[in-house]
Simulated assay, not measured.
Amino acid sequence: MRIHSAAIVYFDAVRRAGSIREAARRLNVASSAVNRQIVKLEAEIGAPLFERLPAGLKLTAAGEAIARHALVVLQDLERARSDIEGLRGARAGHIAVSTVEGVCGALLPEVIGTLRARAPRVTIAVSTMGSFAIPDAIAAGDADVGVAFALRRAPELRQVAVSRFKLGAIVPPDHPLASRRTVSLAACLDHPIILATPELSINQLLGPALARLPRSFEPCVTASSIELMRELAERGAGIAFQTRIGLERQLADGRLVHVPLDNGGPVWSDLGVYVRAGRSLPAVLDLFLQILAGALAAREQLENARG
């Protein structure tokens, strides 16, 4: 459905691609056609929309303003398309998800499976990244929904759902700490430590507690991959720190043990679901969010039942 000016569609494609040639390739049109629309739009506005740099195109201040308008227009068009499909008795559309790696183990496959069973014509694109990169993906329109740990409230985001999970040490079942109900960070430092890099929320949660410890330490491994840290912990290479989210299979199979941290009380990590503030949601996105929120709430209930 292209009921809006081609200039808006082409401008948004150039903004995302960073070049006219790449935008034309994605749109399957000639570069000259894209360039013509950008030049026309700049003439109508009376200001350049892009800076032409050796590394590619960068939005000017006027371009930033038009980008915000284009994002609202195109996302509202997607909602209208979804509503029209709903009137025809069909659930169709596309959902782009930016998420932390941990939820890809069990939570997100469960949610996508439920959605596809109820709306088989919906397509989904999933990209993984650190929690702190997700707000930018939503604000830029690269993601319809973000799933992230420990995000601070921001005016450009609306929190749709949130659940709390305990951060814990993950170790193999034969590890000396595996039999404990809880464990302190100080006790963990008697063993090799695997630490998340700063772009992961785990690092931010543990940072203040680690800084208060009376002795310094050097992690045996630092990593930005949740999967790598889990695998290393399972092999006995060191203690990693994660919530139970993403460890469901390993915990059920007895390959790992999750021992909640006690730092004068549990160390909680909030797992939230976010969309752009002020956006009217397409029906299929709203359905996806309902399923996701329900799956999160069920897992939080299990977490609380463990005590």
Rank of each mutant, 00 (worst) to 15 (best):
A47D: 13
I66N: 12
G46F: 04
K166Y: 10
P48R: 07
V103P: 09
I84R: 11
R91H: 10
V97G: 01
P120S: 11
G63I: 00
A65P: 04
K166N: 14
D144G: 09
A96E: 09
G93F: 03
R116W: 03
A143W: 00
T99H: 06
L77G: 13
E101I: 06
H175A: 03
V73K: 03
R81G: 02
H94A: 08
T60E: 05
L71I: 15
R116H: 12
L74C: 10
A80V: 09
V122R: 04
G146E: 14
V73R: 03
P109H: 05
Q75D: 14
E101L: 12
D174L: 08
G146Q: 11
L77Y: 05
R118M: 13
L49N: 05
G146F: 08
R52S: 10
V147I: 15
A47P: 02
F50Q: 06
F149Y: 15
R121H: 12
V147S: 02
A106G: 09
R81S: 06
S82Q: 01
T99W: 01
A125C: 14
T60V: 09
I138T: 07
L41P: 07
A125K: 15
A154P: 08
I134E: 03
E110Q: 12
A150Y: 13
I134N: 01
A148F: 05
I95Q: 05
I138Y: 05
A106D: 11
Q37H: 13
A92D: 11
G93P: 05
L74K: 08
P109Y: 04
V97H: 02
T99M: 05
A133F: 11
T123R: 14
G102M: 10
R153V: 13
R153W: 10
A140S: 15
A161T: 14
A148L: 10
P155L: 14
I38V: 13
T123K: 12
L77A: 13
P48A: 10
E110C: 04
A178L: 02
A148S: 13
L49H: 04
R116P: 00
E156N: 13
V103I: 14
G86P: 02
G105A: 15
S131N: 09
V34D: 06
L177R: 01
I134T: 06
S131Q: 05
P135G: 10
F149R: 05
E42F: 06
I112F: 00
R164T: 09
A70H: 11
P54I: 08
C104T: 15
T123N: 11
A43L: 13
D144S: 08
A65Y: 11
G89K: 01
C104Y: 04
P109N: 04
S82F: 00
E42Y: 06
A47H: 10
P176K: 02
L74P: 11
R180W: 02
V72I: 15
A92P: 00
R88G: 08
